[in-house]
Design a protein around this nucleic acid. Structure first.
Lengths: 129, 129
DNA sequence: AAAAGTAGGTATTTAAAAGTAACCAACTTG
DNA sequence: CAAGTTGGTTACTTTTAAATACCTACTTTT
């Protein structure tokens, strides 16, 4: 029997499904420490993520109401993401989780905003020749 | 680039990786509401899960120090699982997450302990003939 | 005139996770 | 004496998610 077919519903699980998973948590962590970020900047702040996954994750967070998307139809277009009120409410709990994780040494360390960009973004699709 | 190769470390993520994911959250939710459960009973309380996955998840939680495993070499053997001190500390946050999820109506509802066993456990490997 | 930035979308491949089923030991009970 | 109980393990298959590569359209910069 698949998990999705299981006759169970769990409030905790519904929420964790949205905020956890590869990349998602890290994206949220960035948004928690930034007021507003543009797509490209966020991509640079999450080294290694692809546009495809970043877009998907942001949509999921937006659908759940944790993140707001602001689109300006300029040329080039400007799209900004930020935590919504709901997202800010979540922030408290996320910080508690981070504190416990550090206390228990589950992760080595994590700078809040390592804004230095030493590693080159390296174009997603480098020219063939 | 794979997520696991990404040059990022995030305390929140390290913790969420352990407590979230299919089945895991639901197992934890059971353990939060029970003092101690035997393997078979827990399996019955998480309808649809296979021994394989239940074992794997319990091991992961045990390795992270959230759950204790007590083995009594009787015949048949008796193995009990319970939250550790660390697990009990987590309980507070898990309840906050559940509260927020209910508040935001991310899940319909979830009984704390639906102990009625209407659905037949249906043997994992039924006899061939 | 070519290249780069902007915010993604689409199609295909691949790797990880989960599902399924069978099997085990050792004793107890019918 | 055969079947049931308990707590798993092992091997194999299927499903799902993520990675990879490439594309769009428009503008500014070089």
């Amino acid at each position: 029997m698949k998990f999705s077919d299981a006759p169970i519903g769990c409030p905790m699980d519904s929420l964790l499904q949205i905020i956890s998973g590869p990349w998602t948590t890290y994206i949220l962590w960035r948004l928690v420490n930034l007021e507003s970020v543009r797509f490209g900047e966020l991509k640079r702040l999450v080294p290694g993520i692809s546009s495809r996954v970043l877009t998907e994750r942001l949509r999921k967070l937006e659908d759940a109401g944790f993140v707001t998307r602001t689109y300006k139809p300029t040329i080039p277009p400007e799209v900004s993401y930020a935590l919504s009120d709901r997202g800010l409410e979540l922030k408290t709990i996320l910080n508690q989780l981070a504190d416990l994780s550090i206390k228990w040494e589950l992760a080595e360390s994590c700078e809040a905003q390592p804004l230095r960009q030493e590693l080159q973004p390296s174009a997603e699709a480098p020219p063939i020749a």
